[in-house]
Nucleic acid binder design. Sequence first.
DNA 1: TAAAGCTTCCTAGATTCTCTACAGGAGATA
DNA 2: TATCTCCTGTAGAGAATCTAGGAAGCTTTA
Lengths: 109, 109
Amino acid sequence: MKEKTDLLQGTLDMLILKALQLGPMHGFGISVLIRQMSKEVLQVEQGSLYPALYRLEEQGWLSSEWGTSENNRKAKFYKLTPAGRKQLVEETSNWERLSTAINLILKTT
Amino acid sequence: MKEKTDLLQGTLDMLILKALQLGPMHGFGISVLIRQMSKEVLQVEQGSLYPALYRLEEQGWLSSEWGTSENNRKAKFYKLTPAGRKQLVEETSNWERLSTAINLILKTT
DNA sequence: TAAAGCTTCCTAGATTCTCTACAGGAGATA
DNA sequence: TATCTCCTGTAGAGAATCTAGGAAGCTTTA
């Protein structure tokens, strides 16, 4: 019983990759961006975000390096690798497939 | 690494409720119907389906009774309860919210 | 200068859902 | 009788996310 809506499982990776398509960014920035882009609907919890970033980096879809944020704080900047770009395309088209299929069912009378 | 696409986690309950909106049905029938309605894209595994049916019945969204299928086999027929109908409406609108938000993000340039 | 708050990173543990991989009965068909 | 298909079910595992923390450094305010 909660107020806030959870993410749809399986979409977080795609959203992160998509955010990074706009340019390198640190974790905190990604979560803010996703919230803004979704008009406050999607809220990525930090306990979800950071493990996801590891996953993605381990799989070679992201690379990271330490730097300094706009606010003069230490921050780890992530960016898409070429493999990550490819993965984004794949996940996007899979999302289209699945959400289309679900909508097909929901529209049935 | 698999060929077949998994479901989006969190949507199975909604799909089952939706299928039962068309009338009472047994488990096996539900899985066939979902496959057909989605044009063969969505495939509900039996190991996912039956536990889900229990979950839903336990929460009072479905009721069941044993009967005989069109093929003269013993089958458990499920149907929506009023609470289940309500739940379907809720899950559907939540799906709209989330998928809209995700599409918002994917369309960003 | 002390306190408080925000930014940023991170981890542990639990939960929830779905999948794979089975098992088995019972009618239909040959 | 053998085999096929329909239909129900269970066990165990794995993946993704959540809750609920902790910590450190900068910045603002008292």
